[in-house]
């Protein structure tokens, strides 16, 4: 009975991620409370208006100006409802913002007006994101130009991306199928054409797809191989791999979740965005105890993905 009531106004799309049913539950609770309050208060308003409609010019009215008890009650009850709803919204969203360690990582690049995806083995796809069912996926997203926003209604996730920065979102698909991906940050002429498809497939199909080669000569280069070459050419002089302190901090185990303490005393978690910013704009985040001498490097998106992927392999 309760479920039936909750689902009267449920027009949400198919629930295809681990938290979709919880998001929908919160949504349905809010909707039912909202509809109930709106209908009840409107009903009371119309009832009062009709019951006390003017029948004669001299009709007596009640001289009521306020009622402290009543006013206190109807201030406190909405406050409590709001706190509860905030809390439920917060808990699920907190989960949405904290991807588990070991999630499959896919780099996403939005540009007017299509989506590029790059997977761990260097495979690339455009307009089609393929992920295995039942495993967490983390999307590391940037934009080649203006703002875009990555929205998968079936997964109940959305996040903006912008040029020169990584944003992220994650989800665990729970059922196979093909789902819509929309751009939801207005980006010009073909904004409404900037759609893609999410294909959730079995683990085997995913592996087959990941390793299939349309053109044998175009073997995808592992991103960490690209990254290692860049490291050797540009980073190795100052950043060691064995933990020794040269000019800059060592890369040994840099992605282990450790924190860097900056000159001004702030602690930052070493993540994709920190690395990205430290390459493009090194002087903005100098680690305490190191000289501010690193020059800025202009790497392409693919090179950045390479360096980050390589650093993640350094245990």
């Amino acid at each position: 009975m309760l479920d039936w009531i909750l689902e009267i106004f449920d027009f949400m799309p198919v629930e295809a991620s681990s938290w979709a049913s919880r998001v929908d539950y919160i949504n349905n609770v809010i909707t039912v409370i909202s509809v109930f309050c709106t209908v009840a208060i409107t009903f009371v308003m119309i009832l009062f208006a009709w019951k006390y409609r003017r029948k004669s010019e001299n009709q007596k009215t009640a001289y009521i100006t306020h009622n402290a008890t009543l006013e206190t009650i109807w201030t406190i009850i909405p406050t409590i409802i709001c706190f509860v709803l905030f809390y439920f919204g917060y808990t699920v969203y907190h989960e949405m913002r904290n991807p588990p360690v070991g999630a499959n990582e896919v780099f996403v690049k939005g540009q007017t007006w299509y989506w590029d995806f790059q997977y761990a083995n260097g495979k690339k796809s455009t307009g089609e994101l393929v992920v295995p069912v039942g495993e967490p996926v983390k999307l590391i997203m940037t934009s080649a130009d203006v703002l875009h926003s990555f929205f998968i209604p079936a997964m109940r996730v959305k996040e903006d991306m912008y040029n020169g920065n990584y944003s992220y979102l994650w989800f665990t698909p729970t059922s196979s199928g093909t789902f819509d991906i929309f751009c939801t940050e207005y980006c010009g002429t073909q904004h409404s054409g900037m759609t893609a498809k999410l294909k959730v497939v079995s683990k085997e199909a995913y592996n087959d797809w990941l390793n299939e080669k349309k053109d044998p000569s175009a073997e995808p280069v592992l991103p960490e191989v690209t990254g290692k070459a860049i490291y050797t050419a540009k980073c190795a002089a100052c950043h060691s791999l064995d933990g020794s302190k040269v000019v800059g901090p060592s890369f040994k185990g840099i992605y282990s979740g450790a924190k860097h303490v900056l000159q001004d005393g702030t602690e930052v978690v070493v993540d994709d965005n920190y690395i990205r910013n430290s390459i493009a704009n090194p002087l903005s985040q100098i680690v305490a105890g190191y000289p501010p001498v690193m020059p800025a490097f202009q790497l392409s998106e693919d090179e950045l993905i390479g360096v980050i992927s390589y650093m993640k392999t350094l245990k």
């Binding site: 969203y93 926003s149 929205f151 109940r156």
Partner: peptide, 22 residues
């Protein structure tokens, strides 16, 4: 009241992730 109560859907983080810019 409709405007206000649908504002709750948008103030709630978990549901706003879905509703934002729709």
């Amino acid at each position: 009241m409709i405007a206000g109560t649908t504002g709750i859907h948008l103030a709630t983080l978990a549901t706003d992730a879905h509703y934002h810019d729709t």
